[in-house]
Nucleic acid binder design. Sequence first.
DNA 1: TCGTATCGCAACTTCAAGTTGCGATACGAT
DNA 2: ATCGTATCGCAACTTGAAGTTGCGATACGA
Lengths: 198, 198
Amino acid sequence: MQPEQSPARPVGRGAKVRAAVHAATLAELVDKGYAALTVENVAQRAGVHKTTVYRRWKDRETLLADALAEHMAADIPVPDTGAVEDDLRALARSIVQTFTSPSGRAVLAAMFTGAAHLPEIAAARRRVFADRLARAEPVVTRAVERGELPRGVDPAEVLKTLAAPIYLRLLVTADPVDETTADHAVRVTLAAARAGAL
Amino acid sequence: MQPEQSPARPVGRGAKVRAAVHAATLAELVDKGYAALTVENVAQRAGVHKTTVYRRWKDRETLLADALAEHMAADIPVPDTGAVEDDLRALARSIVQTFTSPSGRAVLAAMFTGAAHLPEIAAARRRVFADRLARAEPVVTRAVERGELPRGVDPAEVLKTLAAPIYLRLLVTADPVDETTADHAVRVTLAAARAGAL
DNA sequence: TCGTATCGCAACTTCAAGTTGCGATACGAT
DNA sequence: ATCGTATCGCAACTTGAAGTTGCGATACGA
């Protein structure tokens, strides 16, 4: 953890406040949900006054977008087992695990439903997804090089096909999501890719 | 001529008020979006007073859930062309068309993002999806009977696989959604089904 | 130690949600 | 045609959170 020195004005205690408010925002999100998230409660939980929050963030939406973006910035390791099936399974299960923990549920609800209409949140959501997609593409290109998948498959399409059924259950049908869901997505994706449909 | 006397109190003008408020709610949704939807504006657009709305609906959420549920209750024709590929294409395109019109966008945003955290909305959303799924299952069973798809495929899984990539684009990636998306979903779904992955 | 940026605090405005009481009106039935 | 009742319009109200402002207090860096 390096204390950020880049701004011409080293903030001082500001960094701690920022971190505390971020943590409090996510905690309130988990406990109360997006609709019931008030700046006053967040400030109180962070041990900070309401005005301090408003001095750092324009409004409640900006605060939430900022906290979520920072939370989702965590790097996810890209698997490289030497077998597509295992790599894809690892990717699919990581999606499942990201969103099935209690806090994951809350983050999912905030990013994809509760606050999805906010431009900042929508942009952050697209950015996070696109980033993870781009970083996982080597899984597919390596599989092609190994001859496990036909040449000409679109890595992005493969990964979207992998993710789609999981998000459908999370966001639309509300069916239970577990490893079975991930494994099923892998089977379907591989079948489609090998049939030349991707 | 009397349609129903079962309620001891035939409401009278109430039906018209109800319809007007429903229409106004959807119109406000399209114009302003969920976040900016106020009961006062809805009432004014419906030519009705605020208190009248609150006498019929417990709160804003209930009103919205009611209006959306009624709006989504419209029956969608189940295709039966004699060829799976054509049937599935018709289904996929109907999903696309439902949510790409201006009003469709607004309804999508309200049902899946803006108001998704409300129990009434979430329940309505699951119910609508499950209903459409169940009514479309004959498309798959007929295809199996014709020998177009292998025995043992799960109709529900086939239809979910068809819908998943469309919803992924609508709700997650925000990529453009058009007939191409629908046709691509058909190709992937058929490939997976014929490979025995569904 | 001293200056400055940041924070705490309280009081304030604004806005929409939701409520209440009462008078007005339209409907259904006699 | 009239009469009783349920529904509606209206205005005034409470509540709660968003967001703002001014000032005094405090912690940090030099």
